[in-house]
């Protein structure tokens, strides 16, 4: 039995995106995730972490290897204390943006993972949870 992985990474500056991506990749390789799923998860990580940096003023990424039944996967929780998202419905639409990004981040990331939840309180912050199964 492998030791469970559970850790937090701080996302405060652009360089931290690379650190997050690399750490997710390491863990994905460690649990034996296939190359396509790895790439999807890392890309989703990059999208959400960048959003958190640009719109949420930075935050933390919590990484955890979880098992449910016979499935093993990686769960990532991104938490910021930024201004929050005024209209989540709108933010989840392709091409909607309030800033300098393409507006593909949230909806695109959702398509790349198995489970995606977003919670935002206007003025308090945003939490995005991603889950990708090893064989998902």
């Amino acid at each position: 039995m492998m030791a469970t992985i559970r850790e937090s990474l701080i996302v405060q500056q652009e360089r931290d995106l690379v650190v997050c991506r690399n750490r997710v990749k390491e863990v994905a390789v460690k649990i034996g995730m296939g190359i396509v799923n790895q790439t999807k998860l890392i890309t989703a990580t990059s999208e959400i972490a960048r959003n958190m940096l640009i719109y949420g003023g930075g935050g933390v990424m919590r990484l955890e290897v979880i098992t449910r039944g016979k499935q093993e996967g990686i769960q990532l929780v991104f938490e910021d204390k930024g201004p929050g998202i005024a209209d989540i419905q709108k933010a989840m639409q392709d091409g909607f943006t309030t800033g300098r990004t393409l507006g593909m981040g949230l909806p695109g990331a959702k398509r790349l993972v198995n489970e995606f939840t977003i919670q935002s309180t206007f003025g308090k912050g945003t939490t995005v949870k991603l889950l990708k199964w090893k064989n998902g």
């Binding site: 790439t39 999807k40 392709d94 593909m104 909806p107 695109g108 398509r111 790349l112």
Partner: peptide
């Protein structure tokens, strides 16, 4: 594959 899924 990822770029296509991302919608790009």
């Amino acid at each position: 594959i990822t770029l296509i899924e991302l919608g790009l």
